[in-house]
């Protein structure tokens, strides 16, 4: 398997995203507004003495801002293509090419991510006008990046599984929406999972969503200590293995369905 087609898919996806200029600028604008709102909300909450796990306010604001920056990248859903292609019946055209179709989806998503990753830089600059962001030490930051990278892959496969459901029930919008709400809440993107009390907190931490946002973020703000890194990475990798296996199995079943029933 040569990499060339996949690099080309990524390049084209990058270029395609760049043509949606208005959307790109709206995205930065909306991010700045949300940074501002979150700062106000958390400042107000902290003045009422609601501090999760004794996280100081500046860490909390760092957490919320970094979470928003991460969402620039993680909210790109390359596998949305699957749903569109099934609806339009064009998946057969891709199956007729000498490529791995899941790898094509991944490259396309990766290319889109590339453009959105560029947005992170101006977004940080604007955000810094509004809030102070803590900067961790180099090793902690490296651990954060690694954890984020695993989370990125996991996010891709979770989306892949969700969108592949479309092979069986054409309409997956409702499922998508529910999963989206649940994952926004339970991934730690909006509130740190340390907020969830007792047994509930344990469950939330055990779900795959935590491995997408919560783990890298808690590493960033220092709630997860270096001696616990290995354990958290392992959990992330296990989820990644599980969901990539699930994706592959679903893809195989879906492709078989297409070749037997004709789409």
């Amino acid at each position: 398997m040569t990499l060339e087609p996949y690099l080309e898919f990524a390049k084209k996806a990058f270029a395609r995203e760049a043509t949606y200029r208005l959307e790109v600028f709206t995205e930065i604008g909306s991010l700045i507004v949300r940074v501002y709102l979150l700062r106000s909300v958390w400042t107000a909450l902290y003045s009422q003495n609601i501090a999760p796990m004794n996280l100081p306010l500046h860490s909390m604001i760092t957490y919320a801002t970094v979470a928003l920056l991460m969402s620039l990248i993680l909210e790109v859903d390359g596998t949305r293509l699957i749903r569109e292609k099934i609806r339009e019946g064009t998946i057969a055209t891709d199956l007729m090419k000498p490529i791995s179709v899941p790898a094509y989806f991944f490259s396309d998503g990766f290319g889109q991510t590339g453009l959105h990753a560029l947005l992170v830089i101006p977004s940080i600059l604007f955000a810094l006008l509004l809030v102070h962001i803590d900067v961790p030490s180099a090793p902690v930051f490296a651990a954060f990046l690694l954890s984020f990278a695993i989370g990125y892959l996991l996010n891709f496969f979770v989306n892949f599984v969700m969108n592949s459901i479309a092979f069986w029930t054409l309409e997956t919008f409702a499922i998508q929406l529910i999963v989206r709400w649940v994952s926004d809440l339970l991934s730690g993107q909006i509130i740190p999972l340390t907020f969830f009390p007792g047994i509930f907190g344990r469950i939330v931490f055990a779900l795959p969503f935590a491995a997408i946002y919560s783990t890298p973020l808690l590493i960033y703000v220092g709630v997860i200590q270096p001696h616990d890194y290995a354990r958290y990475f392992l959990v992330q990798v296990l989820w990644l293995a599980l969901f990539s296996a699930l994706s592959l199995a679903m893809w195989r079943a879906a492709a078989r369905r297409v070749v037997i029933q004709g789409g």
Binding site: K12, A15, T19, T93, M96, P98
Partner: peptide
């Protein structure tokens, strides 16, 4: 093989025509 379906295009919808060709060049090396 090469395939043309009159009812269905294999070109990439969002891309200028020539960029679809470039993609196909990469796909088929």
């Amino acid at each position: 093989i090469g395939v043309v379906f009159g009812q269905r295009s294999q070109l990439y919808w969002d891309l200028p025509l020539v960029e679809s060709f470039e993609l196909l060049r990469a796909i088929y090396s």
